[in-house]
Design a binder for these strands. Structure first.
Lengths: 245, 245
DNA sequence: TCGATAGTTTGCGATAGCGCAAAACGGGAC
DNA sequence: GTCCCGTTTTGCGCTATCGCAAACTATCGA
């Protein structure tokens, strides 16, 4: 198997504090693979035989209910790890991973993990860091779903996508992979219909420009305002009653 | 300072794979403290100077929005760690921790963490495990908030509390610390009014018995049924349109 | 070039659950 | 025992958002 070029990944947070020789050794345990657009990388419930590092492309991690509804857990950007079921002691993947663009990944066998973290403890520390960060983001998302209305949640979601995977344009930021109204609905806990209505509204105000699986934020600044406004018109959540401390 | 008895904590997942001598050394870095009911242990936004292990009592971790709304991130049960800001690389606590009962905790200075995980790598691995588990639970919660109605979410929340901190009764399970309608609302993304209505309804069906900050599940089995029923009466989420794979 | 297909838009009626208000209740402090 | 305060209950109107249906429109393959 062709060896992966060390320099491509040496700067990643995952490998912080890992010597070049160690990195070399770590990479020797991995193989790389290419997944074409719209192909599944692993399925929710399948045995977690591998964990992954995304090199190129974009991956969507989604969780499905017994009744078939889905939510998007997150979009994976290049340089990020995913499928870390083993790190959390899970035997099966808790979500499905799908390449939303042609993608290239590094793959380690799950069985290699215990040995790797034993030899290179900073791997565990670094992974703890990223998992912890994701936990925080997850809590933020819960906070938003609990306290904000749909329009604000969509605004936040798009701003996050723009920050994570935005391509700067002459005038605006384009989200750098195909994403549908349905996807955004599944990120924000609403329906594609409601997302469509919201984006239509924004489009007519010149805030965004969007089409088939494509969104450009034309006026990020005003979208930030939308995201942060605390539900001014009438319908406000009950803050006064039973306020704690 | 009085040394903490090793045997009290040796069995905790956090210390799995740690030798008694190592555990002794780890505990020497900690001090213990008692927090009376309703006292704050740390505040959201404060410098994360310590991390904690709960020995006795119950702690509520809650996140507050700029506008003052709160959500309950989780309830901490004895044996669990909390305030792990350092592990995730945060400088400040992302939430507020408050003792909901008289509580006893072990406290380590954040500054001790790097040294501890260097000397005892399994601490990092174990912590990664628990943080990963919490991340999964968090995703489950997001899934529920996205796909279920309030009554089901409340059912799930109570069942989880019962499993985590339930005291078995002759007939039923009592949640073992004071918890208000408001608290449950903040766990499920609704209002205390709606929670109150739901519990009233359940009470009249003999599912629960509840009062001031006190809830007893009288018929857990039927509550499980409630939690799992997929919104039968009419209002069902749109699964057919744009189903993936 | 022409369908076929997947994604998007939009209208309309229905409703779950919110916000507000007010009353009832329970427990602890003194 | 009584008062007071935090919690809970309940009624009522309202609206954000859903669910359904149907039309529309890019994009891709034949």
């Amino acid at each position: 198997m062709a060896k992966v070029d060390t320099s491509l990944v040496a700067h990643l947070p995952l490998f912080a504090g890992v010597t070049p020789e160690a990195l070399d050794e770590i990479l020797r345990e991995a193989r790389s693979a290419r997944y074409p657009k719209n192909s599944a990388i692993f399925e929710q419930g399948a045995d977690a035989q591998s964990f992954f590092l995304l090199l190129h492309g974009h991956v969507r991690a989604a969780k499905t209910t017994p009744t078939g509804e889905q939510i998007v857990v997150r979009y994976v950007a290049p340089g990020e790890t995913f499928g870390l079921a083993m790190a959390i002691g899970a035997v099966q993947y808790p979500a499905t991973a799908m390449a939303v663009d042609d993608s290239v990944v590094l793959i380690w066998p799950t069985s290699a993990w215990p040995r790797l973290i034993e030899r290179f403890p900073s791997l565990a520390a670094n992974t703890l860091q990223t998992v912890g960060t994701r936990l925080q983001e997850s809590h933020t998302r819960i906070l938003e779903m609990s306290t904000q209305q749909v329009e604000q949640r969509v605004a936040h979601a798009l701003l996050r996508l723009a920050k994570q995977s935005g391509k700067k344009l002459d005038h605006g930021i384009e989200i750098d992979f195909p994403i549908s109204r349905q996807d955004i609905a599944q990120m924000t806990g609403t329906t594609l219909h409601t997302v469509s209505r919201i984006l239509s509204g924004w489009e007519s105000q010149g805030l965004v420009e969007s089409g088939r699986q494509r969104i450009i934020l034309r006026d990020p600044h005003r979208i930030v305002v939308l995201a942060e406004r605390s539900a001014d018109s009438g319908a406000r959540r009950d803050v006064s009653t039973q306020d704690r401390d």
